[in-house]
């Protein structure tokens, strides 16, 4: 029995998702590949966004993939860490901004 939920080797099998639904799998990977092509944003910028999002959604496959992708593109560890702080700031801010809702509720209910 597999002892952990995540196996790093599974990342390489991502493409096999299409085995059980070729049509939707193909559509997904077409879309995915198009998204990461250079457009108004560079491939490098997209890689950093992906890395930050990977940490936000805490996807170990994505963290592995986009750390490696960043290194290949010459992105420095300092740039990667800055991107992560953007993710952390938004994630932390998202919790904190809900404090306004809490404050509204308290102000409404308290005398």
């Amino acid at each position: 029995m597999q002892k952990t939920y995540y196996d790093p080797a599974d990342l390489k099998k991502f493409g096999k998702i299409s085995d059980w639904n070729e049509e939707l799998g193909a559509k997904f990977f077409d879309y995915y590949n198009s998204v990461f092509k250079e457009g108004n944003l560079s491939e490098r910028e997209k890689s950093l966004i992906a890395l930050a999002v990977a940490h936000t959604i805490q996807c170990p496959y994505c963290i592995d993939a986009y750390t490696g992708d960043g290194l290949q593109r010459g992105i420095t560890k300092e740039e990667m860490m800055e991107a992560l702080h953007v993710a952390a700031a938004i994630r932390g801010g998202a919790s904190l901004v809900h404090g306004v809702q809490m404050m509204n509720k308290v102000n409404k209910l308290e005398m």
Binding site: E43, R44, G68, D69, L71, Q72, R73, G74
Partner: peptide, 20 residues
């Protein structure tokens, strides 16, 4: 000449050239 500084492969040559 660009060689990766670690256990990873080089990225796209044209993109790296642009960055350099």
């Amino acid at each position: 000449v660009y060689n990766p500084s670690g256990a990873f492969l080089p990225g796209n040559q044209a993109s790296l050239e642009k960055e350099f």
